[in-house]
Amino acid sequence: MAKHYGRGIAAVNYPTGMNLGGDPTQALIFCQPTGGFSVKLASTDLGQGLKTVIAQIAAEALGVPFDSVIVDTGDTDSAPHCMGTFASRATHRVGNAVIMAANEARKALLDVAAEEMEAAPEDLVLENGEIYVKGAPERKTNVFNVALAAHFKYGKTISGRGIYLKQKSSLDPETGACDPDSTEAHATTVAEVEVDDETGEIKVLRLASAYEVGRQINPEMVKGQIVSGAVMGMSHALMETVFPYYPALDHHTYSFGEYIIPTALDIPEIESVVLEYPSSNGPYGVKGVGEMTANSPIPAIVNAIYDAVGVWVTDLPVTPEKVLRALEEKSLETH
């Protein structure tokens, strides 16, 4: 009777965007008279931080301070279509639509600035809300002045429309040939576990992962996804089922009393590194990271259990009961 240490690895890919594509998102941007920019979206923040990363992308693309960008999302009367938040698509799709809208608004802004400054628009630089003539930084103005002039002197709009659509791929029903993704993010997780061969209990000691997510818009929030996914993956591997005797319906769960998910007491050591290899079609090279973080921990843990006690338990969740049954079967085989 002993506790056995094991280590397992798993390397995974994850597609960005809806399978086969065909999932558009639009954005509108307009400039207020004093230089604030409102980004109008019908997209949803589930807690992953979309409202924040979109403000970052808009500020970057417009060339204005982060605080001057307002993200107004979640109202179908005031914003155009978004397919929704799922399939690790939001930052990729919404971000691309916002960059397209920002580019149009930025061009409109610089056209007015050029008129006001008596310069060619292509000679103007817009950085952090300041506008100056390339090579002549003393010839300068700012977004505040240009926005006022556009509204009250020239009668010009400063706004932009954006959409991103990966056109829907066909799928050959005979071969399955299709274009299933926009890009692929990747991850490798190393799980370390301790398995008690007397009780069948599994303790996950450590989940260490390397992620490659294109580009991080907000590294702390990427880390937030990685850590949360590690815990959800561990939970999926070891704890969760609606039907403990699936496919039978007996003992189905009604509450958090029977449906077990981790608490603050169940958290292993979680470490990660993030690599950035920008994708060709994501906003600033983004790849979707939302869903994938709960994936690699699952097989890494199952592989670590095999490493620890030499049994394959590949029917999730890996409960102590299943581990003990597998150990018993193994001991019967060897005797």
Partner: peptide, 25 residues
């Protein structure tokens, strides 16, 4: 790939190498 899309943006190898480095293997 089996779906007949040519691989682009692959970094599986790089994440495997980085994970090994992370745990000191």
């Amino acid at each position: 790939r089996p779906v007949r899309k040519v691989v682009e943006d692959a970094t599986l190898i790089e994440t495997i190498q980085a994970a090994a480095e992370l745990i000191g293997y």
